[in-house]
Nucleic acid binder design. Structure first.
Lengths: 353, 353
DNA sequence: CTGAAAGCGCTTACAG
DNA sequence: CTGAAAGCGCTTACAG
């Protein structure tokens, strides 16, 4: 235990017989140092067990090599995969990922953004695009790159790496209408502070309107993203006097809950009612019946978000990313409605989806 | 855009008419600064929109306020919850959490540990306790606190915040033996670099031995933690000439896969074969049949890991944490074996679990 | 309670 | 290709 506990770059320089600047260059731009010295320096590094101090490096270079990621939650199957993919990509470029959870709460997210800006992070990954403009102003004032995932459009398209939630749910509706469905129910997430949930609901409404259909107020239930909540909502929808012939779920946990509740209520899916999900998580292909849903390319989104950010960090001028494609995956939870049901309007166009 | 883009503590000091040292104190130990000055300083901070620079702070104070967490995976339902709980706890104490995934690979983990030590992090959260002693030496040389989760014993009990995997699976075996089972099959994770999986398997073996039973070699299959892998293994086990009357799964995804495969094979659970899980994730209570399993207190573990680390970071001397309790949750996937099956030995003691 | 000063361990123009 | 020197923006004994 000497007085000086940590070995510094200066120690390495002394042992290698070069200046600290050269050691620094050797670590950051090896090709700019004569090979012979590189060997001596590496030897000194190994001999001393030198570990560079990231804080000092960050301060001197004004780059922390840290990227902050703020996700709504980690305690489900949705965000972990993309985060892991993101971390892997930026990690191999030398960046560390700091995480925080907003718990689907704007105030929490705001605090975390502020903390990350203080850290300071070199870049930021967020989910969704709707937030107080002041937040964006604050981020941009610091001049750090950021990426908005899970959405493809909005005010800041050049920062969005995601897919078109509204278009995806509209696809779903077109398909369901083509099956003959006219009475729709929906279990949605809360839309106030969640533009993904909002877009999915809007997409459903818009597509229904195109078919001269609509979603009745009492057929739309907002619930947190939990299977239990989905069960509860499904039970309510199916206990009404005129239950829907199809229940669209804005998030997959809702659909799992709906399927479980149907089983417990003795309701046949898709015989009596069709059920759809959104995201195509692993369970969707294992439920009974298997779930018709929208596949979202989540890992791919994580990777692309990383590349988008890394390009900006390299100082490249980047174009607005192209929206990622979603896919309608038809499985066994959807079928024609149980009996011919006269639609609320005439002139219904079949099979146009 | 002035030449100096960032406002620094010095700017605040100048505007408030105090020294930089006082501004620093005002932020870190407010009570040591006269109230009147505190107000002036806060005013200056607000007026300038001052954001302290974490890198400089880290360098000067030799504390980065960052904790590194290395988990085997984020892309499943297991580690996200505890990580979120951990982040929440340490976050409210002012710490940032950096994450990385080892992908159940020692070399990956080693690289991430090294990167974190460079960052440098103030503390480290790891999963499991078995790793190259050199790694521990390296961590301890830097003098940073660390916590080993998901395990309760081993060489470094004072760092473990977890539960006794072996005892938990032994409980399960005792219960199954008490039901009358004598022919056991097991789907286990790979045990070479995973001491949790190793302990679960060892616990099963030890408990069986206590009952004069054992696990035949061809009744033990090692698989990655995926439902599909569980399906595959279950299929193999049940296709043998003498299939087991119970399949113990070392991880819950294996059990889900087993249940799905049983359904597809037309095998009645628990009529023909019992199936057990380990962890009690949300799906366990929703499968058909519902799953008998071991409940592990994962969120609580995340919180306790945080408190254990925070106490050390405060410089407190901490005692070895008490192991967390696991619970045998009996549901519908287990029952007596289909027919009286003569055990390999006499003198079997019933109901001793 | 407060300030002047040194220092944390790097990086990076600048000059050669 | 290399070195001397300044500087990144804070914190913290030390003295008062």
């Amino acid at each position: 235990m000497s007085r000086r506990e940590t070995t510094t770059l200066e120690d390495v320089a002394r042992l290698a017989g070069v200046s600290p600047a050269t050691v620094s260059r050797c670590m950051n731009q090896p090709q700019s140092v004569r090979a012979e010295k590189r060997v001596r320096i590496q030897g000194a590094i190994d001999q001393l067990g030198y570990v560079p101090n990231g804080s000092a490096r960050a301060l001197a270079s004004r780059r922390s090599r840290m990227i902050g990621a703020i996700l709504p939650s980690l305690d489900n199957m949705l965000f972990g995969g993309p985060l892991e993919a993101f971390q892997k990509e930026v990690g191999s470029a030398g960046y560390t990922v700091a995480v925080a959870c907003s718990e689907y709460d704007q105030q929490h997210e705001r605090v975390h953004i502020r903390n990350f800006l203080e850290s300071p992070v070199d870049a930021l990954l967020l989910v969704g695009g709707h937030r107080d403009p002041n937040i964006y102003r604050q981020i941009e004032r610091q001049g750090i790159p950021y990426v908005l995932t899970w959405v493809s459009s909005g005010d800041r398209e050049e920062h969005c790496v995601g897919f078109d939630n509204a278009a995806a749910s509209a696809d779903l509706v077109d398909y369901l209408v083509s099956l003959g469905h006219r009475r729709f129910g929906m279990i949605s997430g809360f839309t106030e502070h969640n533009d993904r949930a909002g877009a999915r609901l809007a997409g459903v409404r818009k597509a229904l309107a195109r078919h001269d259909l609509s979603l009745d107020d009492d057929q739309l239930l907002h619930r947190p993203f939990e299977p239990e909540a989905g069960r509860d909502a499904f039970h309510i929808l199916m206990s009404g006097s005129k239950p829907p012939t199809v229940v669209i779920c804005g998030a997959e946990p809702h659909a799992y809950g709906a399927l479980f509740e149907a089983r417990d209520m003795g309701i046949d899916v898709p015989g009596q009612v069709s059920v759809t999900g959104f995201d195509d998580m692993w369970l969707a292909s294992q439920t009974m019946p298997t779930l018709t849903t929208i596949r979202t390319p989540r890992e791919e989104m994580g990777r692309q978000a990383a590349h988008h950010l890394l390009a900006q960090l390299r100082g490249e001028r980047v174009a607005a990313p192209r929206p990622l494609e979603t896919t309608l995956v038809v499985r066994k939870s959807t079928a024609a409605p149980p009996e011919p049901f006269p639609g609320p309007t005439k002139g219904l166009k079949r099979g146009q989806g």
